[in-house]
Simulated assay, not measured.
Amino acid sequence: MKIDWFVACKVAYPRPGQQGTGLWPASVAHAKRLGGTSAACGELTTTMKKLFEVPFPFAGENCRACLVAVSEERRARTQGARHVAVREGSA
């Protein structure tokens, strides 16, 4: 499964029941992509923990501004794909 947006947070702890280095958010989860230094909401993530294996949104407390930004971006991408399919189908 490709993770488009992953979680970045200020505090993380080892995942319950998992051995190894897997972490889980213990603070508000922000949406982050590879590259860049900020979350979808614009907050800097340079000092945050990056949880590359945890997809955003996660089943906990998520940043509301990140939720809005990610959902708008996904909606725009989906609508763009529909427009391309309609144009290709009508040709």
Rank of each mutant, 00 (worst) to 15 (best):
Val68Gln: 12
Gly17Asn: 05
Gly22Glu: 05
Val86Gln: 14
Arg15Ala: 15
Arg15Thr: 09
Ala12His: 03
Trp5Ile: 01
Lys10Arg: 13
Leu44Val: 03
Thr37Tyr: 10
Arg33Ser: 06
Thr46Ile: 15
Lys10Pro: 05
Glu43Met: 15
Gly17Phe: 07
Gly17Asp: 05
Lys2His: 10
Val28Met: 13
Glu61Val: 12
Ala76Trp: 04
Lys50Ala: 15
Glu43Cys: 14
Phe6Ser: 06
Glu43Asn: 15
Gln19Thr: 14
Ala76Tyr: 00
Gln79Val: 14
Phe52Asp: 09
Arg87Tyr: 06
Ala31Ser: 02
Gln79Arg: 15
Leu67Glu: 10
Ala76Gly: 02
His83Ser: 11
Cys41Pro: 02
Gly60Phe: 08
Met1Lys: 10
Glu88Arg: 14
Gly20Gln: 02
Arg64Val: 12
Met48Cys: 01
Arg64Glu: 14
Ala65Pro: 00
Arg64Lys: 13
Thr37Lys: 12
Thr21Phe: 09
Leu34Arg: 12
Arg64His: 13
His30Ile: 03
Lys10Asn: 09
Thr21Lys: 10
Ala12Val: 00
Arg33Gly: 06
Ala29Trp: 07
Lys10Met: 11
Leu51Ala: 02
His83Tyr: 08
Arg15Ser: 11
Asn62Met: 00
Phe56Thr: 00
Thr45Phe: 00
Val86Cys: 11
Val84Phe: 06
Gly35Phe: 07
Gly89Asn: 11
Pro16Ile: 07
Arg87Pro: 00
Met48Phe: 06
Ser90Cys: 09
Ala59Glu: 08
Lys49Gln: 09
Gln18Ser: 15
Lys32Asp: 06
Gly22His: 03
Ala81Phe: 01
Cys66Ser: 02
Pro25Glu: 08
Cys41Ala: 08
Glu61Thr: 08
Gln18Ala: 15
Phe6Ile: 00
Val28His: 07
Ala40Arg: 03
Val7Leu: 08
Gly35Pro: 05
Gly42Ala: 01
Arg87Cys: 08
Arg64Ile: 12
Arg87Val: 04
Thr46Cys: 13
Glu88Tyr: 09
Phe58Tyr: 15
Met1Asp: 10
Glu53Tyr: 10
Val84His: 12
Pro25Ala: 09
Pro16Gln: 12
Gln79Gly: 11
Ala65Ser: 07
Cys9Thr: 06
Lys49Arg: 15
Phe58Asp: 10
Tyr13Glu: 14
Lys10Glu: 13
Pro16Trp: 09
Val68Glu: 09
Val28Ala: 11
Ala85Tyr: 06
Lys32Tyr: 03
His30Ala: 07
Leu51Gly: 01
Val68His: 08
Ala8Arg: 00
Tyr13Lys: 13
Lys49Glu: 14
Ala8Tyr: 00
Gly35Asn: 06
Val11Ala: 11
Pro16Met: 09
Ser71His: 13
Phe6His: 08
Thr47Glu: 06
Ala81Tyr: 02
Ala59Ser: 11
Gly36Thr: 04
Pro25Gln: 08
Ala12Thr: 04
Thr46Pro: 09
Glu72Tyr: 08
Gly42Leu: 02
Arg75Ser: 15
Phe58Lys: 04
